[in-house]
Design a protein around this nucleic acid. Structure first.
Lengths: 235, 235
DNA sequence: CCAACGCTTCGGTCGCCGCCGAAACGTTGC
DNA sequence: GCAACGTTTCGGCGGCGACCGAAGCGTTGG
């Protein structure tokens, strides 16, 4: 049989990366790490639903492929996603999975919480993430033209008043403001350094709280007021 | 053992989609379809490097999961990617694969052609795609701020002169102008309806030609002149 | 109408990989 | 130093799924 020669190289690497994500245990591990924090091997074993030895094997494979990175700290080992690109790929896959044919998923209460507000790597997603993006867009603070975005001059001033100065920090190669396709809302929300700063600031202000063992985010009473006053968001 | 309950649902669907891409034969099939055209089962079998029966099974699975779509035509069956989201997910995975540890890939001449200019679903990628995006950005026809993009008023006029009217066609939900992370250049190139229109127009003008059995694109002599005059691109 | 062709279905084989328990390793703390 | 703990390594088991050849189905063209 005639072989397609060089084409196979890209297919091989593509398959290798996808196959790593394509195991239920490993997918659960990566999903758990999508909240941007670093978790221990034990915590990840719990999330994956398999034994510690099995988890260890999975973590070794993911680390070797540089999908995740590890940091030793005492007798714990903290694992985190290796890069924002990995998070983006995972989110893109979830978007495909969400639009696919109804795979039997009885929408539980936990699922509803995720759709309301959740963390996507280091920024907000779900209905709250969309509302934030819409609010900033409506006031002309950012320009979201057809899935792409940029910060205006007034936006920069507004953000500074809100307590976010995007000029500080090391000059990073990371995009200042980019969008990310929301898998539950099917619309773009704010990502990049702006998205991360917005989320961090809301947490610092006590407006948002993480839900334990989940990517879901809860809006506090103070947060309800603050979001309404600052961003015109009513939940 | 305590089970993480509902969290597993998302992990399950994520793993299912990723596992479909995570087979070498299927990855080759999807890679081949990344050129945006619809190919027959036989052609895909050749690209996949496996027998016709095996390919048929793969195609059935991919179709059922709605990663690809099929169209019957006589005794042929034409398969294509089901949506732009699928293409985006594939591109994101390739970006991850490209930045990972050097997986033994001896850069062949075919590979070099892909890095120079290739089709990414329905728009241009590679050095040529980057150069086009940079050119339009430099002249202020589009604004590419940190990986995000929008078309300016002058840009719209310029594109109309070039033969692209983005107002025509049915009002589509597809983004007009978005960016796509280039896996070989590690920088954003133009995607969305603008990216597609630019590629189509260049082909119509006879500036670009597809390379047989590859996603690579060749610049014609006429194209070299045209690209230089219109976009200030020197290859 | 029959032969050629493209594609799918069926049946059986084989190899890879996920899984766990037991044991080893390294760190912490008493 | 020793016990407790978190994590990894080892060995062996089991099952899923990719693969092919042969046969079946539908279409095309003479």
């Amino acid at each position: 049989m005639l072989l397609p020669m060089v084409t196979m190289i890209s297919g091989n690497t593509l398959a290798h990366v996808a196959a790593l994500i394509g195991d239920v245990a490993r997918a659960n591990i990566l999903s758990a790490l999508m909240d941007g924090r670093a978790l221990t091997a034990g915590e990840l074993a719990w999330h994956a639903g398999v034994s510690a030895p099995t988890t260890s094997g999975h973590l070794a494979k993911l680390t070797e492929a540089e999908l995740i990175a590890v940091e030793k700290q005492g007798r714990h080992r903290y694992y985190r996603l290796a890069s924002a690109e990995v998070a983006q790929a995972l989110e893109a896959l979830m978007a495909v999975a969400a639009q696919g044919p109804r795979r039997h998923r009885p929408v539980g209460p936990r699922d509803e919480a995720l759709r309301a507000a959740r963390v996507c790597y280091d920024h907000l997603a779900g209905r709250l993430g969309i509302a934030l993006a819409d609010g900033l867009c409506l006031r002309g603070h950012v320009i979201l033209a057809d899935g792409a975005g940029a910060i205006t001059v007034e936006g920069r001033r507004f953000l500074r008043d809100f307590g976010i100065d995007l000029a500080d920090g090391p000059p990073s190669a990371r995009p200042l403001c980019r969008t990310c396709l929301d898998w539950s809302e099917r619309r773009p929300h704010l990502a990049g350094r702006l998205g991360a700063a917005l989320y961090t600031r809301c947490v610092d202000l006590g407006w948002l709280e993480r839900v334990k063992d989940s990517r879901a985010v809860r809006v506090t009473a103070k947060g309800r007021d603050g979001l309404a006053q600052t961003f015109d968001i009513t939940l």
